[in-house]
């Protein structure tokens, strides 16, 4: 599948935004060290900013962005529509939470309730994003039961890494966010390894024979002399050798390095924790962009069977 940059930016940025929003919504419950009156509003601005940038970026790959509002209508059948609705609904408690922390009493019951609602809706939105991919039976590498857990835990891990950085910048204790980040990053790594193992070992069940009804078929002349939309969008594939290298690099940058520096941040403080937080954010962002690129590039669509692939 063709990896569209707008979709890579959208899913990684909004994932991290929802992960951060989830943790901020539960700030009281998980015992975050909130220093000063600006930590919450600034952090929430970052979370909502990432979500908004992501959502806007997702409209860039539309042929008719001015009609994007129509996508809220078909939530009964379409995961993409459900995602749009969930994203907009999440803005309501998240926006109220932002206003309360900016102008109101940060310890009120309203903050707790809006926080819980924003956290729950963040989970729902990321789950809907994952289901857009996981519901497609045409792409084996996406139609995997590991896709929703991977998306959810990646959002949590990248949000926790941001939280480590923010807490350190505001001079708070990075112990709680640091530990959450390490646990989430290790969980994300193990889920992603399990996902990769799954797509590597699973049998390819669709054949060119089933696609054409012809025994022992091979294509001797394609229908068109240059690439068409179907080939550009669905025929994109990365060389297996490169995929292996990129997987290792993505895992190192997205999970291993951020986990190490977040661990250091958890047990230190001050400037060292801030540097660790910044390194973790930069590394995790780069690694996740590669991971998401691979999610597309390694995915083989069934339609490639008509263009000469033996199995899919």
């Amino acid at each position: 599948m063709h990896p569209a940059y707008s979709v890579i930016i959208f899913t990684t940025a909004s994932g991290a935004g929802y992960g951060l929003l989830f943790l901020l919504g539960l700030a009281d419950i998980i015992g975050l060290d909130i220093r000063g009156r600006w930590f919450m509003p600034v952090s929430l601005t970052l979370a909502l900013g990432l979500v908004t940038v992501g959502l806007l970026s997702s409209t860039f790959h539309l042929g008719r962005p001015e009609r994007a509002w129509r996508a809220f209508s078909q939530w009964r059948s379409s995961w993409l529509s459900r995602e749009g609705v969930a994203a907009v609904v999440t803005f309501v408690p998240a926006g109220i939470l932002w206003l309360l922390t900016l102008f109101g009493d940060a310890n009120s019951a309203a903050v707790l309730i809006m926080g819980l609602l924003a956290a729950a809706l963040s989970v729902v939105t990321v789950y809907c994003t994952a289901m857009i991919y996981a519901s497609l039976t045409t792409i084996r590498q996406w139609h995997s039961s590991w896709v929703p857990p991977v998306y959810l835990v990646l959002a949590l891990a990248s949000g926790a890494v941001l939280l480590v950085c923010l807490t350190a910048l505001f001079g708070g204790s990075t112990y709680v966010p640091g530990i959450i980040a390490v646990v989430a990053l290790l969980a994300a790594y193990s889920f992603k390894l399990r996902y990769w193992l799954g797509i590597d070992t699973e049998e390819k069940t669709h054949t060119m024979q089933a696609a054409t009804g012809l025994e022992n078929a091979r294509q001797i002349a394609p229908p068109h002399t240059s690439e068409n939309y179907v080939m550009k969008e669905m025929g994109y594939r990365v060389a297996r050798k490169h995929a292996r290298k990129l997987r290792r690099l993505a895992a190192l940058l997205a999970f291993v390095l951020p986990a190490i520096v977040c661990l250091i941040a958890a047990f230190t403080g001050g400037t060292l924790a801030t540097i660790c937080g910044l390194v973790a954010v930069a590394s995790c962002a780069t690694g996740l962009a590669m991971e998401r690129w691979l999610f597309f590039a390694e995915a083989q669509h069934v339609v490639t069977l008509y263009y000469g692939e033996a199995t899919a």
Binding site: L214, I220, A221
Partner: peptide, 10 residues
């Protein structure tokens, strides 16, 4: 779109 295949037993 019209593909052209070669098919059948050897």
């Amino acid at each position: 779109r019209i593909h052209t295949y070669e098919a059948g037993p050897d």
